[in-house]
Design a protein around this nucleic acid. Sequence first.
DNA 1: TCATAACCGAGACGGTACGTCAGGTCTTTTA
DNA 2: TAAAAGACCTGACGTACCGTCTCGGTTATGA
Lengths: 194, 194, 194, 194
Amino acid sequence: MGGGRPRDTGVEERVVAVAREMLREGGYARFAVDQVADRAGVAKTTVYRRWPSRDHLVVAAVATFLDDVAIEETGDLRADLVRIAAAIAAGLGQPGIRLLVSELIAAGARQPDLAASVYQLWARRRAASLDLFAAAVGQGEQADDVDPGLILDQIIGAVYYRALITGDPVDDDYLKRLVSAALAGAGVSSGGLA
Amino acid sequence: MGGGRPRDTGVEERVVAVAREMLREGGYARFAVDQVADRAGVAKTTVYRRWPSRDHLVVAAVATFLDDVAIEETGDLRADLVRIAAAIAAGLGQPGIRLLVSELIAAGARQPDLAASVYQLWARRRAASLDLFAAAVGQGEQADDVDPGLILDQIIGAVYYRALITGDPVDDDYLKRLVSAALAGAGVSSGGLA
Amino acid sequence: MGGGRPRDTGVEERVVAVAREMLREGGYARFAVDQVADRAGVAKTTVYRRWPSRDHLVVAAVATFLDDVAIEETGDLRADLVRIAAAIAAGLGQPGIRLLVSELIAAGARQPDLAASVYQLWARRRAASLDLFAAAVGQGEQADDVDPGLILDQIIGAVYYRALITGDPVDDDYLKRLVSAALAGAGVSSGGLA
Amino acid sequence: MGGGRPRDTGVEERVVAVAREMLREGGYARFAVDQVADRAGVAKTTVYRRWPSRDHLVVAAVATFLDDVAIEETGDLRADLVRIAAAIAAGLGQPGIRLLVSELIAAGARQPDLAASVYQLWARRRAASLDLFAAAVGQGEQADDVDPGLILDQIIGAVYYRALITGDPVDDDYLKRLVSAALAGAGVSSGGLA
DNA sequence: TCATAACCGAGACGGTACGTCAGGTCTTTTA
DNA sequence: TAAAAGACCTGACGTACCGTCTCGGTTATGA
């Protein structure tokens, strides 16, 4: 029950940093654990000691990407929603990111124990979006029967759906109509809450 | 200009049939071109002559899956939409299918020349769903400013989004609320068109 | 008895010409029947109708190379032999030719029906060398117990042996000693026949 | 600088042993790296880690063949030489060996980095033969100006030449004449050194 | 202070599949 | 018929990554 050598805490950071780089450069396909380890100056064993599979490492690396995105709320719910949706659409417009997102989804589907982590990836962003509604309600408007989650699903779901699955374009005009329809569906009057 | 030996059209069928089987049995992960060729009694090179990569073959095989699904319209638009959404949700509820769908999306993102084929996979089902609206309009209801595509995006998009990305449950109650909201957002009155 | 399309007599020539070129360019390893046919503007089938295997075609092509080499006899047997040996050594000094010769030998060993053709390839050159002895005898010298074939074997055999098998150098000095030893062994006096 | 897992030295032995077997069974043509690995209970990648190509492995395997051959010297140089030459001729008389030797030579010509190994294959046997001369000289005979290498070249070279290249028979009578001529050419008297 | 235990770098290893290449045969249309 | 075109089968090649394992060496703790 002795102690043993303590883990080098620098390893996590270095590896994840390199992993992030490699994802940016070559995407998911050319992401090889061997190379990550090499570049990070770390043994492959050390990598596998922390992340039980390539997918786990990728998810961990992506988790650090998403921190960057900041959501600014202007108080104008409709506009804020459009802006958020546009940001997502813009991201998915880049082939690299589109692939990465797809692969993450697939990774979650492949390994059940990863699913939760992957879901959480998006959950954080979703939570930020949900705050918008709280703020809007705070500014005083009826919100009794409004389900913000449902509205978000309709909007963001549609964006992912078009970008990843149907391949249809997601332009600004579409987004405006989308947001309007979703808000209207929830009984949020055009002039009202927004 | 002369001719050359004509392609054995039986090959396509046999290979795709075997590919379909193998997808059902082992999913995407255990799908190996080598084995498909073997089982189909065909040389691997012959497979590669038609489908330039594993992904291409998988997409081709999946394309034949989807033909089976029939959409029955009952005349009750709301109920039909709920049923369609439920069917999709049920499919995505199965881990194998969820993975397969994810991998297909990823395959499209990996190889640009595959994207179109993958999009088309879903497009066919989408077209069938859109017919519902045409039928509903035929039964006489206002539909001047209704955009069926937008409504579908909100519904189906939300289902995919929850099933694949957020991991949130997609139960019947949710679907009813979802469909209602989407229809309401388009100005379709509760008692009206549906 | 019907007529049928007559054989295009130009085919042999064209194919062999192309084959020769390709051997010069890429050597035996990169010699592909497919490409030969393509370049000659001929169907692969047509090639195989005339030469039953790749090896056969190669041998046929090489046979046309060797015609070029001319042996000039000067009347000085010893010098002539040295010159011949040197020519062979020079040829085998080129990696491409060394490989080609090796592969021809191998081809002969692989396919018994080719062996004869391959042997004949070298036989022609050998015959020319043997003429030297006839000429020398004609110029009057004892030749009762001289076996020209044996002498040639000793000389040319040694050259091939060193060039192909032991990798030892075959320089001029060596050749002179070699020829002298071989002639001496046959009882040909230094000053005499030569 | 540390080390890493040490190579399993058993692998070399097992693989080479299997390789040798397979060469004996099916010759060069049916020698497949895949099968060697399988039979040796080793991953193909492990094989390729040590021998960068099929040819390399074959050469390594053959190298272990040749160790078996023992050269017995009886003190009678002439007879010993005849016996050695006869042994070589007998070997080359077997189609399988003839092909193997040809392919080895070709392999050396194909891949420059293999040439040295192939040359060495024969060099060992040659060295053993050269010992005969040392022994003969030890038994006291003039050998000042005798070049054993030259003599061997003439004898062994001629044998290979006839067996592989001209296809002429190499019988006992021929060998006796050959050895005599070569010795005579070196000034070794019939009754003398031999 | 010394054994023990966990960590680390290095790299061999088994395994699985990939996509490719070339040889040689077979089938059709056209001259 | 022969020729051109090209599909087809066969068999093997060498490569890429994955995740596991076995080393020697290092750094902490606890007896």
